[in-house]
Structures are given as structure tokens and as C-alpha cells.
């Protein structure tokens, strides 16, 4: 509480004069120009280039030629790629893999991450700070390092196999890294859990304890209070945390390459990564990237719509 008040005190110094009028004309524009130019050149133009390459064609010399003029856009590639995503198409398996792996990893993240976040936010007591620090470490540990660590443990002669053989669960070494879908899903969950838990933890921490006490006073049991009060309040934070990991997971190609390397576990990111890098199918790669980005924008707008609606419903 005191903290919040302190913040408010500073804010009250706000003056009524328009702060901008004091500066020379164009001062802020000049100050912002380099940054905006940067974003225009390196964010907007590249986004447009993806569209242009996707809508372009391949020359006789087997070079992709981007089409910059929207009036001549060639939708053929995009249509072809979409068609190949349908069952039986070239990308059907890849799309299925991507959707199931991402969904599976997300479910695991919720099942593991939510209890952890909840415990640390509400029940950890004196361990809270330590636990948060322990969560922050993997957050800032290179993703590739964390995969590398598992590769060592899951190797044929690694400690996981030796442990499982030692206690008699396995008779011989198991090939964890040999194209197993479930290993990819667990690895994704392992990789992205830190990015899931921290934002969730922050939101759960903000749930007012008095609400819980009130629920108990009203005679709801432990379980009742959890399901009637905490769970509904966790809905938006959970969706937010899922969004945080959904975006990078959809563009992931390194996890499955490292933990499997078999075409049997290829995701859409693998295809984008390979195709867009060059060769006569760069326009296919660009189309895949474009479709993925459009899908994510759609999902993101849904999330923004939902969160703005819930903000209106429950004043924070």
C-alpha cells in the first residue's frame, strides 16, 4: 500500500500547463525521427517485403522476383500454399504437428505453470523471494543452453536412461532424441515455461487476498473459494500468459531440430526457415510466413478484444 501511495505522490506534481508548448516547434519530431525512421525501414518495409515476395514470381533464371506493386500481385503462390495445408497436401502434416505440439505444450504449461505460479504468489511465505529468483534464472538462461542441457541428459548413454535402467523401468537405453513427438512437446513446454510463469505470477500476485477471505467468510470451502473466486480471476492472466508463449512457439524450429531432427516432427517454422533463405521457393517460404503472421494477428486481436471486454466488465 505504502508503495502505491508513494508513486501517487510523485504523480501529483503534474502541472496544468501543456508541457509541449515550452519546446521549440518540431523539437519532439526531430528527437523521435531516428527511432521512427528505424522502425519504418526495419519493421514496416521488411513486413511489406514478405508480402511482395509472396506475391511475386520466379524468373527463368530461377530467381524469385518480388512484386512491389499491389496491382500486379500474384496470389497463386499463396493460394497454392493454402491448398497444400488441407488434408493430403504437402504442408498438412507440418500444420498438424505445429498445432498439436503448440497446443500440447500449452496444456503442459498450464498444468505445471499455474500451480507453481499460484503457490509462489499466494502460499510461498518466506520462500517467495527465493522462488522468484529461482524462476528468473531460467528466464534469462539462453534457450539453446537449456536444450543443450537436456540433450546431454537424454543421450543414449545419458543419465536419464541410466536412471530409468537402474530402477528397472527400462531394459535397455531408450532413444529419446530419435524423432519422438512427445519429447518435442515436453521440450517445448520445458523451454517456454519460464516465460509463461513469470507474467502469470505477477497477475496472480495482484489478486486481492481480501476477496479470498470474503469468500471464506461467506461460507465457501477451500475448494469453493478456489473455484468460485480465484479461478475466474485467473482466466485473463492465463490467456495472457498463453499468448506470451504462443507467439514464439509458432515460429519455433530449433526445438524440434535439436530434440529430434526427423521430418516426422517438422513444424511450420522449419519450413519457413529453410524455404525463405533462398532458392526458387523463396516465395513459398514468404507465403508461409505471411499466413502464419496473419493467423497470429487474428489470434492476438481476439485476445485484445477479450481482454478489453473483461476490463470493462470487472473494473481493475
Amino acid at each position: 500500500m505504502a508503495e502505491r501511495l508513494a508513486g501517487r505522490e510523485v504523480k501529483r506534481l503534474r502541472s496544468r500547463r501543456d508541457p509541449d508548448s515550452a519546446y521549440p516547434r518540431g523539437f519532439w519530431h526531430a528527437l523521435g525521427a531516428p527511432g521512427f525512421a528505424w522502425f519504418a525501414f526495419w519493421v514496416l518495409v521488411p513486413a511489406y517485403t514478405i508480402v511482395a515476395v509472396s506475391m511475386g514470381y520466379v524468373s527463368d533464371s530461377m530467381l524469385p522476383v518480388p512484386e512491389w506493386d499491389p496491382r500486379y500481385w500474384n496470389l497463386e503462390t499463396l493460394r497454392m500454399v493454402l491448398g497444400e495445408m488441407a488434408p493430403g497436401g504437402v504442408f498438412a502434416k507440418v500444420v498438424t504437428n505445429t498445432v498439436t505440439y503448440v497446443a500440447g505444450a500449452m496444456v503442459l504449461c498450464v498444468l505445471v505453470g499455474y500451480p507453481v505460479a499460484y503457490y509462489i504468489a499466494k502460499q510461498a511465505g518466506r520462500w517467495k523471494v527465493l522462488l522468484i529468483v529461482l524462476l528468473t534464472i531460467p528466464f534469462w538462461t539462453s534457450y539453446l543452453m537449456r536444450m543443450l542441457a537436456w540433450i546431454g541428459l537424454l543421450a543414449t548413454d545419458g543419465y536419464v536412461n541410466r536412471l530409468l535402467m537402474g530402477v528397472g523401468i527400462l531394459d535397455g537405453p531408450y532413444g529419446w532424441l530419435e524423432g519422438q513427438s512427445f519429447v518435442v512437446v515436453i521440450s517445448l513446454a520445458y523451454g517456454y515455461l519460464p516465460y509463461f510463469i513469470l507474467p502469470l505470477l505477477a497477475s496472480l500476485d495482484r489478486i486481492d487476498d481480501r476477496l479470498i477471505d470474503a469468500a471464506k467468510d461467506l461460507g465457501l470451502g477451500k475448494a469453493g473459494a478456489f473455484f468460485k473466486v480465484i479461478l475466474p480471476l485467473s482466466k485473463m492472466p492465463l490467456i495472457a500468459a498463453c499468448t506470451v508463449i504462443l507467439l514464439p512457439m509458432c515460429g519455433d524450429f530449433y526445438t524440434t531440430t535439436l530434440m529430434s531432427g526427423s521430418p516426422a516432427t517438422a513444424m511450420i517454422g522449419n519450413q519457413i526457415q529453410v524455404l525463405a533463405q533462398g532458392g526458387p521457393q523463396q516465395n513459398v517460404g514468404a507465403s508461409l510466413a505471411l499466413l502464419l503472421q496473419l493467423t497470429l494477428i487474428l489470434l492476438l486481436s481476439f485476445y485484445l478484444y477479450a481482454s478489453s471486454k473483461s476490463n470493462k466488465a470487472v473494473p481493475a
Partner: peptide
């Protein structure tokens, strides 16, 4: 996704 940023910049 970083991959899409990367592809856009590369192209």
C-alpha cells in the same frame, strides 16, 4: 515471432 522478423529483414 522472431523467425518472421528475421525472414522479413533477410528478404
Amino acid at each position: 515471432p522472431e523467425l518472421i522478423l528475421a525472414v522479413g529483414l533477410y528478404l
